[in-house]
């Protein structure tokens, strides 16, 4: 029988990570539905590389291998990175990104709990600035693609870069919704014309918006399980929405509406899974609001004025630098003490 004040046991790291993995499952189903089974191959490569490089680094650092490996944090990093990559990414791209995330961003800084930067986003940023053309060529959703690839074809494409006879790369890839919007706006076309094209859906990208809904679903599960607090996702989405609403009100011909920004790109993934990383994020409630709000604004600015189509990774990394400062200035008043 428990006695007052009824403190519940804090869940262990592995339980938390397992639930995060569980929350990502709907999104993976959505991915397979929209883009085909290739994402499963990418996820497997990332998982394998993450676990082996984590084990290797733990051994080199003379740390116990199994307990740290079983906490599942490497697995979550691998999955978050894999879900940020194009679903038909070549195998070596996944290997390089995961290796950077685990070895350099996490283990070289001291392992779980000591990394100042979000490992998955470090891996993503490294890949994006190193291989921009591969990273911005996403496969078209299956129902829009000119050529259909089965699971076996996708498997061969990821490992060998080979496509079936008669299929060209252009037949299976297209610009991402954010990328296309940016280039077309650059050609002085009206926003309304652009967003009526087939690659756009009701809110965001055709098909891709289904994946973002799945992230939202997983995020609500995390909130319900009290693994994350409302501060980070709400502040991020609110600042993104408010900021884009202001621009949208000023010039709706040129700036996309808030719903578009919330349901395209990595917004939902970032809101519930990326910025909620407990290690590299702030710990105080007020700090969380500042952190997430700042990332939202910066993401919007990079999307609209920056050189890259999406800005989540860079915004998260930039605000990771500010976390110690944010935490230092937002310490809550201790009960019974004056400030």
């Amino acid at each position: 029988m428990t006695r007052s004040p009824y403190l519940t046991n804090a869940p262990s790291v592995s339980v938390i990570m397992l639930k995060v993995v569980l929350a990502l499952i709907p999104a993976i189903f959505a991915y397979v539905w929209v883009f085909g089974g290739g994402i499963l191959v990418v996820l497997s490569i990332a998982t394998f590389v993450a676990l082996t490089s984590e084990a290797l680094m733990l051994k080199l650092r003379n740390r116990p291998v199994l307990p740290f490996l079983m906490d599942g944090s490497a697995l979550v990093t691998a999955w978050l990175l894999a879900l940020s990559l194009p679903p038909l990414a070549p195998w070596w791209l996944v290997v390089v990104g995961t290796f950077f995330a685990i070895v350099i961003a996490k283990q070289l800084y001291g392992g779980l709990g000591y990394n100042p930067f979000n490992p998955a986003m470090v891996g993503y940023a490294v890949l994006l600035i190193s291989f921009p053309s591969i990273m911005t060529h996403w496969p078209a959703p299956l129902d829009l693609a000119k050529a259909q690839l089965g699971f076996a074809d996708q498997f061969h494409y990821i490992f060998g870069g080979l496509l079936p006879d008669g299929v060209k790369v252009d037949g299976i890839t297209q610009a991402t919704p954010l990328d296309y919007l940016k280039t077309q706006l650059g050609l002085h076309r009206d926003l309304q014309d652009i967003t009526h094209e087939s690659i756009y859906g009701k809110f965001g990208g055709h098909g891709a918006e289904l994946v973002t809904f799945a992230y939202l679903l997983g995020g609500i599960y995390l909130l319900q399980q009290k693994l994350i607090t409302w501060h980070l996702p709400v502040a991020f989405l609110a600042s993104l929405a408010i900021f884009s609403e202001i621009f949208y009100l000023v010039n709706p011909e040129h700036f996309a509406n808030p719903l578009f920004h919330m349901f395209t790109g990595a917004s939902m993934l970032a809101a519930f899974f990326i910025i909620t990383d407990p290690v590299s994020g702030p710990t105080t409630p007020k700090g969380k609001l500042i952190f997430a709000g700042g990332i939202g604004i910066l993401t919007y600015l990079i999307r609209v004025y920056g050189g890259y189509p999406d800005g989540v990774a860079f915004s998260v990394l930039l605000f990771n630098i500010g976390v110690p400062l944010i935490d230092a200035y937002t310490q809550p008043r201790v009960f019974g003490h004056t400030k």
Binding site: V96, I104, V126, I129, S130, F131, P132
Partner: peptide, 15 residues
């Protein structure tokens, strides 16, 4: 070789 741009860019120098 595809090229690994990060090594040429400033972060590569620090690494």
């Amino acid at each position: 070789y595809h090229g690994f741009l990060l090594a040429i860019l400033p972060p590569g120098a620090f690494f």
